[in-house]
Design a protein around this nucleic acid. Sequence first.
DNA 1: GATGAATGAGTCTTCATTCAT
DNA 2: GATGAATGAAGACTCATTCAT
Lengths: 221, 221, 221, 221
Amino acid sequence: MPAKKQLGPRAQRKAERPGEILDAAFELFVEHGYLATRVEDIAERLGVTKGTVYFYFDTKELLFEETLRHACVPFTDVQAEVEKLEGPYADRIRAFVRVVYSRICADRKSRELLRLAIAEGARFPHVVDRQFDEQILPMFNAARDLFQAGVDAGELHCPALLQFPQLAISATMQMIVWDLLFFDRKPIDAEAFIEAHLDLLLHGALKHARTPEPAEGSSVS
Amino acid sequence: MPAKKQLGPRAQRKAERPGEILDAAFELFVEHGYLATRVEDIAERLGVTKGTVYFYFDTKELLFEETLRHACVPFTDVQAEVEKLEGPYADRIRAFVRVVYSRICADRKSRELLRLAIAEGARFPHVVDRQFDEQILPMFNAARDLFQAGVDAGELHCPALLQFPQLAISATMQMIVWDLLFFDRKPIDAEAFIEAHLDLLLHGALKHARTPEPAEGSSVS
Amino acid sequence: MPAKKQLGPRAQRKAERPGEILDAAFELFVEHGYLATRVEDIAERLGVTKGTVYFYFDTKELLFEETLRHACVPFTDVQAEVEKLEGPYADRIRAFVRVVYSRICADRKSRELLRLAIAEGARFPHVVDRQFDEQILPMFNAARDLFQAGVDAGELHCPALLQFPQLAISATMQMIVWDLLFFDRKPIDAEAFIEAHLDLLLHGALKHARTPEPAEGSSVS
Amino acid sequence: MPAKKQLGPRAQRKAERPGEILDAAFELFVEHGYLATRVEDIAERLGVTKGTVYFYFDTKELLFEETLRHACVPFTDVQAEVEKLEGPYADRIRAFVRVVYSRICADRKSRELLRLAIAEGARFPHVVDRQFDEQILPMFNAARDLFQAGVDAGELHCPALLQFPQLAISATMQMIVWDLLFFDRKPIDAEAFIEAHLDLLLHGALKHARTPEPAEGSSVS
DNA sequence: GATGAATGAGTCTTCATTCAT
DNA sequence: GATGAATGAAGACTCATTCAT
């Protein structure tokens, strides 16, 4: 960690501006959508004028694309975390789903990003596709590997999940759609929702089902 | 139904116009969003001019709200269908989920409606809320009643579904989000997806689990 | 000449608008140039608003091109007039030059058009070239034919004019350049200027020089 | 001339900067016109930034005026050359026209300057007028003196040229207009054009017409 | 009922100009 | 001297809305 080059206040400002603009743009694009957000509004939120925004980004469209890029939280570590999981596969799956939930659904920025992708994605398909290839697909593949390992270990029986690993996080998506539609007018207890989903998910995915019958944190001797 | 023909061709035309306009508006609002759709485009699709649209709808905003209202397929019969279900509860749940799927996900109009609700809902919350109260909530309540009946009959054990009946259709939602994001650039076999979801859902929802182990159409002796 | 279809005042207005706009645009483009003329100024001169101008012309650039096209006085009749000339070729040449002068130089609109072509032509080369092919070149060819006929008739000896027929109207061009540069700050007697040019031109173009015969105020003994 | 080197490299730079800026500005103003040329483009061509240009010139408008002034090639020596001419007046006129041609028409900078004066002169009339008074008028007066001397010597008969000495260079002007309009899309052999002009000019300007004596490729049996 | 010419507020974008560093 | 981030006035263009015909 060598100290950052000692920047003058001017240079420092310049280095920080683009990020500041993208943050402000993200908020407003998320809140009002692409078309309904004025470049001037974005500038205003920073206390600068439109000219400044255009100094850093040539067009509103480019600004939007950069905004999406900037808002992406790298999911690469999700993969890493999945691979580090240990213990019974039921617990690994719980851990996986909770990680995804905390990344996509609980993290305001990611949630809003998805909102934006759904609302404006038709206008910028290449941005959505890039995001898919770099973030979503690897995550699903990591999930599939996890499920396969569970099957191989004799702990899981889940052809459905091997075919569609994304089903493991369907509740997360549903949670977000709910949020997109009703915002905070029809609140849901998100934690409880995810746990309920896990309950349903696991007792279908486990090969050795709940014969003696416990639930929530189920374990087999 | 022959009553319709009582009207002269002129009067008939007049009676049909609003519906025609709303259909055309729906297509365009869905395709481009609220702001990017011009009133003139809507008129053009019908072969009339702006003035005609404004004759029937005072403002673009009102036209949009009417469009959403008009596009709503009444779900009341979903309730009715659920109540008519008979046989093992596993099958009833399958039937319920398939009905919802065919109504919301397979029906293009409903799917697009959801797209529109997500993309523009923030601009028209009251329209979304009305739709929720009149369509979504009753459907969920019907689902909850179904699950409760299954529990009472000793066939189901699913506190999760009683708490969040919408989990039964999480895959349907996920399917739509997928479609909204990737349109037809990353196609999925929707039927297989729903069946996979049902497989997971049921084997977690059934009180008498798969002890001896069958899957897919599982049955106990 | 069947009477023009009886147009309502509305339709009549619509039919006249484009021409009115082009006239106003011509004045302003000529006066201030392409870039310095605002679309709103053009509208204002007509007592309408910019929206009206854009109703008839999609962009400022198209409006400019149409303006040039609209301002073009067809030169085709110059050709016709040249072909009808009779009498000694000296007189025919005088007549030709005077016609060109009256068309290009004395006619305010044509003069301004040339001004515009010089000032903004680099921005719209295709417009200039079209004008050249359709107007200028035929006129020069007609001139060359006239000179050739004079040579054949034994009245002219002018290889220079056969090679460069445009030399016959060089003074007209010079007059316009003068006007472009100094407008009315350094006025010139245009009629006298053209006559002086003709004096020089002819006594070089005539095969039988001025030995016996004097012309235009020049005399020998 | 060695005095220049007394300055340090820094000071020298400073002394040269204004001229460099004006040269760069000239190129760009000529190519794109006043309004379409950005101050930043001018700076960029020099490898400096806007601020530097503004250090030397307070406004774009002043920069433009200085650019015109700086681009003016002093015509004073044209006068001097004219006065040094000897021999038959026909030859003196040829020499005069050729000098003017080489100065105004063949010299790229002067030609472009005229283009600029025509295109933008209306915006800066005082600059054009100054140029006229200091450069054009003296040149024309020198020409008139030459023609008068020829008349006095009994070699010329040209009231037209005495009244409008500029007619002697009308072809030069026409050549430039041609270039302004068609650039290099309709090329002309400039040398041949000027010679043709001289042929016409002289055989009208010469008191003793071409009866006995032929010139420039013209011959009578 | 339908038309479509006209309006004008609103938005993106450019660029001459300033000034702290 | 030079830099270049920031300003803000200005201009092209759009489109919801009106209303005379």
